[in-house]
């Protein structure tokens, strides 16, 4: 459209451009710069070459964190790609009261990860609901160390992530199911296809692209996990700090006297490298869809 003064559009975009430069482009560039220095929260900032990356190769905590990330991703991927689809099919039909159920299923999504982790920390506590109930039933003699065992803590965090994510991906699928043509379902039903058959031959192909989108989103968010592990382990990263995620390590080195901003930046680049694969896949899908 026309406008009388040449600078009008620039006035309109100016604030967003300032934010683009100061809080997006500059920090990206600066992360790379910092990664090659020994910058500390207090002082430092000399060029140290590849020292931070050499340190990263040697860092057993980072190795643990990467293993945790992979486990996290491998467990979340199938669960959060399939369960929300089934849930979306369950809430798709407009039965009386369905809005209530949809809203309720979405509630864990709008709650803060901190709140959810504190609630689960209490439920999974040595003397919490799950252990109390299991002992009352006599299933276990001693409390299960959900929050103090290296692997159980990780799996507790994973189940929390899955539980909190169900509603989010359900909504994405619900939106996609609206586009699956109803005639296909009806034709299949007339041909005598049962519900399971229709699921695999009509629904799944119909939401194939959405399933790919969801699996990319699930992978990336599994690699970015922070709050669940931080709160469940009370900031310690579990026994021996072995239940850290990459983001927890970044947070650890950003703050305090033991802080090392240069090393934290190098870890940020490691995080970027492991998330870029799924992200690029997402961009390609986006272009295909458009």
């Amino acid at each position: 459209m026309t406008h009388r003064r040449w600078f009008t559009p620039w006035l309109l975009v100016a604030p967003a451009v300032v934010w683009l430069l100061v809080f997006n482009l500059w920090p990206s560039l600066n992360t790379v710069v910092l990664a090659f220095t020994n910058a500390k929260p207090l002082g430092g900032g000399h060029f140290t070459g590849l020292a931070n990356f050499a340190r990263a190769l040697d860092d057993s905590q980072l190795t643990d964190a990467l293993v945790n990330s992979i486990v996290y991703m491998l467990v979340c991927l199938p669960l959060l790609t399939m369960l929300p689809l089934l849930l979306a099919i369950l809430v798709e039909k407009r039965l009386p009261g369905i809005t209530f159920f949809r809203t309720a299923f979405y509630t864990p999504v709008v709650a803060s990860a901190v709140v959810v982790a504190l609630i689960w920390g209490w439920v999974l506590d040595d003397r919490g609901l799950v252990n109390g109930f299991a002992q009352w039933l006599g299933v276990v003699a001693a409390p299960v160390p959900f929050l103090t065992d290296r692997w159980l803590l990780l799996f507790s965090a994973i189940s929390l992530t899955v539980w909190k994510g169900l509603g989010y991906y359900m909504i994405i699928y619900l939106s996609a199911l609206g586009n699956v043509r109803r005639e296909l379902h009806e034709a299949a039903a007339v041909d005598g296809a049962g519900a399971v058959r229709r699921f695999w031959s009509v629904t799944v192909p119909g939401v194939r692209n959405t399933m790919l989108l969801v699996s990319v989103l699930v992978s990336v968010s599994a690699l970015r996990v922070f709050s669940e592990l931080y709160v469940l382990s009370n900031g310690t990263g579990g026994p021996g700090g072995r239940d850290m995620s990459v983001v927890m390590l970044i947070q650890l080195y950003t703050r305090g006297f033991s802080g090392h901003l240069g090393y934290a930046s190098a870890l940020s680049i490691v995080l970027f490298v492991i998330t870029i694969g799924p992200m690029l896949l997402l961009l390609r899908l986006d272009r295909k869809a458009a």
């Binding site: 997006n24 600066n30 901003l261």
Partner: peptide
């Protein structure tokens, strides 16, 4: 949008 916020959080803090 490709960049997860956590990747730039250190230099964001520096800024």
């Amino acid at each position: 949008l490709v960049l997860p916020g956590e990747v730039t959080i250190v230099s964001q803090y520096v800024t």
